[in-house]
């Protein structure tokens, strides 16, 4: 149990540093703004109560807000992500339900599951974030462009993160 908590704390710090000190500085153009921290909320334990989930997401998003001068946009979007996580999880639940011992990463749950759940959650998160950021109906196309492109890049980034930092399961013979 303690190692699980420690893993999450280390992941918290790592993703925070990645987001605030590196990703915030990358500019690709076309309104792309990459965000890697939602993967942290996805990888929190499945059995975690949705209240704690939203509270943790709020705290994490708020901390990123303070460091990147975004005034609550990340906090709001992260809370949306956390709110929809149990709903989407239920929608795409495996046949025998979730194993409490398993972590919801792409190796243990399979890439298809990861693509569907995390893809949808990430789109919700990014859409909410960019709607808040622009906050103008007349620029809806620009919002959609930013959301689509940023979500695609963030998704690839999260796959890379899992490939690099997560333990891969041993192949069964």
């Amino acid at each position: 149990m303690n190692t699980t908590i420690l893993t999450h704390i280390v992941r918290f710090v790592l993703l925070f540093i990645l987001q605030v000190f590196i990703l915030n500085y990358l500019e690709i153009g076309y309104g792309i703004h990459m965000m890697i921290y939602p993967i942290f909320i996805l990888l929190l334990p499945v059995e975690l109560n949705v209240f704690y989930l939203m509270l943790i997401a709020f705290g994490f998003g708020g901390l990123i807000d303070i460091f990147s001068d975004t005034f609550g946009m990340h906090a709001s979007a992260a809370v949306m992500f956390a709110y929809f996580r149990p709903i989407i999880f239920k929608l795409f639940a495996p046949r025998d339900g979730y194993d409490i011992l398993m972590e919801t990463n792409m190796f243990q749950m399979g890439f298809g599951w990861f693509l569907r759940t995390f893809g949808i959650l990430l789109l919700i998160h990014h859409l909410w974030f960019f709607i808040l950021m622009i906050f103008r109906i007349s620029e809806i196309l620009y919002i959609l462009q930013m959301t689509g492109l940023s979500a695609a890049l963030s998704f690839i980034l999260c796959i890379l993160y899992q490939q690099l930092f997560l333990r891969k399961p041993k192949k069964e013979a």
Binding site: G61, D65, G72, V79, Y83, L132
Partner: peptide, 22 residues
């Protein structure tokens, strides 16, 4: 509706923060 209410509370804080700034 406790989940929705909690969501509304947290969103309320975050959005107040954002729109106060705007």
């Amino acid at each position: 509706f406790r989940v929705i209410l909690f969501l509304a509370l947290l969103q309320g804080i975050a959005l107040t923060w954002y729109f106060t700034f705007l």
